[in-house]
Write a protein that binds this DNA or RNA. Structure first.
Lengths: 230, 230
DNA sequence: CTAAAACCTCACGCAACGTCAGGTGCAAGC
DNA sequence: GCTTGCACCTGACGTTGCGTGAGGTTTTAG
């Protein structure tokens, strides 16, 4: 007879018996007959259908999509949607990859890594997409080495300003004014002179006190700078 | 007090209450205290930890990987592995996309689509990877139009040979020999003259009777051709 | 006729939560 | 003092596509 038992079909088609059970359970591939004792028997049609199912699964369609297509739905549409979703995923994953590699190369300890990631997350929360693109372009333009330089320059500069403030130096004192000018220059270099971006940066520091404590200037410090530059 | 209740933490950090329950259940983020009535209270440390978790999840790490990293595991290694997996996935998805688009453009009805997919699947089963690459290059070389032409030529040719066979024409008859030469030419065009590829094709037809019935020649037919060419 | 192989039907497990369901805690208005 | 209503609690099932037993019956080979 040309009816196959489940194990034979499994071997011939390369899927597991359990998978066939599953397809039966969800109604995707139901055996044409059963023996009186309940053993599944698959006929020619089912064998052909299984081939199709396997093929479609290799193309990564979901079982539901496969069922839909085999029911005669518009295959072109299903495929188009599938491709669209795939493309989206690819784009996202590529972005992720790029970031992760950049990340892994720029930080070494776990803490530094987390720092960097958190900062990236925050940036995405506070900047619009075009702004982020602009910042990326800006970084590209500045180059890695200058970026690193600026990153180490920033805390030193802040420390020196803080000292002047603590010492009570007049904000109009030339030494302070010089520091303040460096300060502005650094910010301009980062923002590319874009006022909107600077505003977003300000919002970030205003709302995320945790970040401000580590990297940013508190209110007293930024007032001091503002007076120096006025 | 600076302990947050679960709802407040959820709002501040942008995750759902259920997610926090989940993180608690799996031990990823356990509240420092509970009120006597059992309400969760999160302290500063937990808030910070949640920030980190959220950031890492945005990079698509699994909760297990995150737990690992926060326990102080080698972050570089985890990231490297993650990137490697991502790259693999990207490669696979890109291949899939290319195929699916090619597919959607070359077939229109559901049956044709399934036909094409099945044939692709079978090819992958019977040819080694370098062979498949060679075939792809060959198709590239031939061009789309010639390919389509050959595909429609094939059944016509086979039909004519079948007729001669049924009529009992001597295989050495010039008309049959001419048909047989066309036959060989088509196969050579497809295989690029590669004997190994032709052998694989033969195996495919030998083992997959369903395909042979539709596209291929049965034993009688191929014997007939062989005699015509001898 | 017996033992092994193949078959059957539950049913849990996986990742990361969403989504009820049914019950308690706590502040405010009547 | 009582009710309303909101925030909180603990289960527990659903999702996707099966893997992996458990425990029991049927078929097949020797």
């Amino acid at each position: 007879m040309d009816e196959l038992k489940i194990g034979d079909l499994a071997k011939r088609s390369g899927v597991s018996v359990r998978t066939l059970h599953h397809y039966d359970a969800i109604g995707l591939l139901v055996p044409s007959h059963r023996t009186p004792s309940g053993h599944r028997l698959y006929g020619r049609d089912e064998i052909a259908r299984l081939q199709q199912i396997v093929s479609l699964r290799q193309m990564n369609f979901s079982l539901e999509q496969i069922a839909e297509m085999l029911r005669g739905a518009d295959a072109q549409r299903v495929i188009a949607m599938h491709v669209a979703r795939l493309r989206e995923q690819i784009a996202m994953q590529q972005e992720l990859c790029a970031r992760l590699e950049h990340l892994a190369s720029s930080a070494s300890t776990v803490d530094e890594l987390l720092q960097t990631i958190e900062t990236m997350t925050l940036f995405e929360k506070y900047y619009s997409k075009p702004q982020l693109d602009a910042l990326a372009a800006r970084r590209e333009q500045l180059g890695e080495s200058r970026l690193r330089e600026a990153q180490s320059e920033w805390p030193r500069l802040m420390q020196r300003v803080r000292e002047e403030l603590a010492r009570g130096t007049d904000p109009k004192h030339p030494r302070v004014v010089a520091l303040a000018k460096q300060w502005r220059a650094l910010i301009d270099e980062f923002t590319g002179g874009d006022a909107a971006i600077e505003q977003s940066l300000r919002n970030l520091y205003a709302n995320e006190s945790a970040v401000a404590e580590r990297h940013g200037a508190d209110r007293a410090l930024s007032d001091y700078i503002a007076r120096a530059l006025s």
